[in-house]
Simulated assay, not measured.
Amino acid sequence: MSNIRITKEFSFETGHALYGYDGKCKNVHGHSYKLSVTVIGVPISDKTNVKYGMVIDFSDLKKIVTEEIVDHFDHATVFNQTTPHIELANELKNRGHHVILVDYQPTSENMVTDFANKIQKRLPDAIRLHSLKLQETDSSYAEWYASDNA
Rank of each mutant, 00 (worst) to 15 (best):
I44T: 02
T14H: 04
V65F: 00
A126I: 15
Y104K: 03
S2T: 05
I86V: 15
S2P: 14
Y104F: 14
L129Y: 01
K24Q: 04
A17H: 00
T83C: 00
K118Q: 10
K62S: 01
H29T: 13
E87Y: 02
H31A: 03
D22E: 13
N49A: 09
T83R: 03
N27K: 10
Y145W: 11
E9D: 14
N49L: 07
H72Q: 15
N3H: 09
E136F: 11
L129M: 12
E68C: 15
V39A: 10
I100K: 09
K118T: 00
L101M: 05
S45T: 08
V78D: 08
I64H: 12
K24F: 04
E136R: 02
K133G: 02
Y21V: 14
C25M: 00
F58D: 00
T38E: 13
T107W: 06
S32H: 14
L132S: 08
N3F: 14
K62I: 03
H130I: 13
I40R: 15
L101T: 07
G30A: 12
T38Q: 13
D60G: 00
K133Q: 07
L132T: 10
S45W: 01
S32N: 07
N27S: 14
A146K: 14
T113R: 06
G96E: 08
A150S: 11
D22K: 12
T14Q: 02
E143Q: 10
I40K: 14
W144D: 04
V102H: 13
G15V: 02
Y104A: 06
S147M: 10
G41M: 06
S147Y: 10
V55W: 05
S59G: 12
G96H: 13
V42Q: 15
I127M: 10
V50F: 15
H97G: 06
D71R: 01
E91N: 08
R122P: 06
Q120F: 02
I4P: 08
V28F: 04
S36I: 00
N80Y: 04
L92R: 14
V70Q: 13
K63E: 01
I6A: 02
Y19K: 00
L134Q: 02
V70C: 12
I4A: 10
K26M: 07
D103S: 10
H31R: 03
T66W: 06
K133P: 01
V65E: 00
D71S: 12
G53T: 02
K63T: 03
Y21N: 08
K34M: 03
Y141R: 03
T107A: 03
D148V: 03
S108G: 15
V55D: 10
P124T: 11
N117C: 01
G53E: 06
R5W: 01
D22Q: 08
Q81C: 07
M54E: 08
F10L: 05
I119K: 10
L134H: 04
T83E: 06
V70H: 04
M54W: 05
L35Y: 15
I4E: 12
I127S: 10
S139F: 03
G96W: 08
V99S: 06
M111Y: 05
D125W: 08
I86Y: 08
I40H: 10
K34T: 15
V39F: 09
E143K: 11
A142E: 11
N94H: 11
L61K: 00
H75Q: 13
H85I: 05
F115M: 13
E87Q: 02
G15W: 13
N27F: 14
R122L: 11
I56R: 05
N90C: 03
V78T: 10
A146I: 01
T107L: 03
S147G: 12
E68H: 05
D22N: 11
I127H: 11
Y21G: 15
